[in-house]
Amino acid sequence: MTKPPILIALVNDYDVVTTGLAHMLDQYRERVLIAEIDTNLGVDDRVDIVLYDTFAQPESDVEELRTLAENPRARRVVVYTWNFHPALIERAREQGMSGYLSKTLPAADLVEALEAVHAGRVVVSEQAPRARTAPGLNWPGRGEGLTDREAEVLALITQGMSNAQVAGLTYLSPNTIKSYIRSIYRKIGVASRTQAVLWGVQHGFTPDHHRVEHWQGGP
């Protein structure tokens, strides 16, 4: 007898991020099925796994992780990230996360990891040394040449955070944040933080508030 697919809810602040991930997983619909996509709304359906994409929702947001872990509609919660600072992994485990998976995983490997989580294992990806994000994912500013990490920094700045706050939330050094910001300014053609924030507002870097139910014919 064929096993039913694992029901997944995708959670992030940005539609472009969650829909890109949903499209990446669509080729494995017989194994994982997107039940709903939530951007700044609580999980509504009963699902096997919540896949929490951390783009501009840093892993250090303990309250967000706790809310997801305590939601009775979600059997398990998995963090999906590029940031593997040991303190972040430990904190996620303390909040009840069942997985901590890398955005560098090819789609097939991501599905296998989700299946392992569904079977009751706690899965933590090996840290990839500066590898590229998996093909198929998307983020604001990608078309303008921003990397996912640069885009995340710009999103946090657009939300009004200082360099120190961005560094603290992402567990990156202040000098690394400054380096990202210089690269961002160059790529989007601005010369100041105010101009960068305005550009971010105009190009989809403010959080969305949507729920997509029954993704592509899902439950």
Rank of each mutant, 00 (worst) to 15 (best):
Gly168Ile: 03
Pro106Phe: 03
Val77Leu: 07
Ser192Arg: 00
Glu112Met: 01
Leu154Lys: 02
Leu33Val: 14
Glu70Arg: 14
His210Leu: 15
Ala196Phe: 06
Asp13Ile: 05
Leu65Pro: 02
Val212Cys: 13
Val17Gly: 08
Gln127Lys: 14
Glu30Asp: 15
Thr176Ser: 10
Gln95Pro: 00
Asn138His: 09
Val153Met: 10
Asn138Asp: 12
Gly120Pro: 03
Ala74Glu: 01
Gly189Leu: 04
Leu105Cys: 02
Pro86Ser: 02
Val111Cys: 03
Gly99Asp: 00
Arg76Tyr: 08
Thr104Pro: 03
Leu137Trp: 09
Asp15Leu: 15
Ser102Leu: 03
Val111Asn: 01
Ala22Tyr: 00
Lys103Ser: 07
Ile89His: 03
Met1Pro: 01
Lys3Thr: 07
Glu150Thr: 02
Val79Asn: 06
Arg186Asn: 05
Met1Gly: 12
Ala22Val: 02
Glu144Thr: 06
Ser173Ile: 03
Trp139Asn: 11
Leu137Asp: 00
Glu30Leu: 13
Leu101Val: 02
Val212Asn: 08
Tyr185Cys: 08
Glu36Ala: 11
Gln195Glu: 11
Val212Asp: 08
Leu88Thr: 02
Ile184Ser: 10
Arg132Trp: 12
Gln165Lys: 13
Glu63Met: 15
Gly218Ala: 15
Tyr28Asn: 03
Ala56Tyr: 04
Ala196Ser: 09
Gly168Val: 03
Val201Ser: 06
Asp148Trp: 07
Leu21Asp: 00
Ile34Cys: 10
Leu21Tyr: 07
Ile49Leu: 10
Met97Thr: 08
Val111His: 00
Ala35Trp: 05
Trp139Asp: 06
Asn83Ala: 13
Asp44Lys: 13
Asn12Ile: 10
Ser183Glu: 12
Glu63Arg: 14
Met1Leu: 09
Glu59Gln: 15
Gly204Asn: 12
Val16Cys: 11
Arg46Glu: 12
Glu70Gln: 13
Glu126Leu: 15
Glu126Phe: 07
Leu68Ser: 08
Val212Phe: 14
Gly204Pro: 03
Asn40Gly: 06
Ser192Cys: 01
Gly20Lys: 07
Thr19Val: 15
Phe55Glu: 06
Arg142Ser: 07
Thr176His: 07
Gln216Val: 01
Ala9Arg: 05
Ala108Gly: 01
Arg46His: 11
Leu68Val: 05
Thr39Asn: 15
Leu198Lys: 12
Arg46Leu: 05
Leu41Gly: 12
Leu41Met: 14
Lys187Thr: 04
Asn12Arg: 07
Asp45Ile: 01
Thr158Asp: 02
Glu64Thr: 14
Ala131Ile: 09
Gln95Tyr: 01
Ile6Ala: 07
Ile6Asn: 04
Asp53Ala: 14
Arg66Ile: 08
Arg149Tyr: 13
Ala56Met: 08
Leu156Gln: 09
Arg76Met: 11
Tyr100Phe: 12
Gly160Asp: 04
Glu126Gln: 14
